[in-house]
């Protein structure tokens, strides 16, 4: 078995991962993939990566990716990485649209920036399409006075 030029091993901390797809978008080889299925967002990544690219690590907003230089190949795991995060479903259409973790972070951010406590507004728990629908109905409702 020939040993390829292995440069770094990829570690992902699933507890830190928010479930965004910055790493997947960042990878020039598109070797990090994700899909939403059965209520979860599942990520897959190789255990090792050739080259000295650090884009996935740099892109990660949550510092969940760690790259370790590989000297010895012995004792290393070659198993591809896989982790998943529960998806949040839209309150209205029940379609999943982001991860629960992202939604929780959004909720905390809104609380901190504009004092909007969880459940106070209807849109954060809705998918973008439903947000558009809600907003357009609100505006139409206002507009009926002008018609």
């Amino acid at each position: 078995m020939t040993v390829p030029e292995l440069h770094q091993q990829i570690h992902v901390d699933p507890d830190r991962c928010l479930g965004c797809f910055a790493c997947a978008s960042a990878c020039p080889e598109q070797r990090i993939t994700w899909d939403d299925r059965e209520g979860n967002r599942r990520f897959r990544a190789p255990a090792v990566c050739a080259g000295d690219c650090t884009r996935c690590r740099d892109a990660c907003p949550a510092d969940a990716v760690r790259l370790e230089p590989m000297g010895e190949t012995a004792g290393r795991s070659w198993e591809p990485l896989s982790w998943s995060l529960p998806l949040a479903r839209c309150r209205r259409c029940r379609e999943p649209f982001t991860t629960q973790k992202i939604l929780a972070l959004l909720s905390r951010t809104l609380e901190a920036t504009v004092g909007l406590s969880a459940g106070e507004a209807d849109w954060p728990s809705c998918c973008p399409a439903c947000r558009r629908d809600l907003e357009s109905r609100r505006l139409l409702d206002a507009a009926r006075w002008n018609r």
Binding site: C20, F21, A22, S25, P61, I102, L103, E135
Partner: peptide
């Protein structure tokens, strides 16, 4: 970084 968090935050889904 195309992480998509902005899309999650936009109140209007635009």
């Amino acid at each position: 970084t195309h992480c998509g968090l902005c899309a999650a935050a936009c109140p209007f889904g635009v």
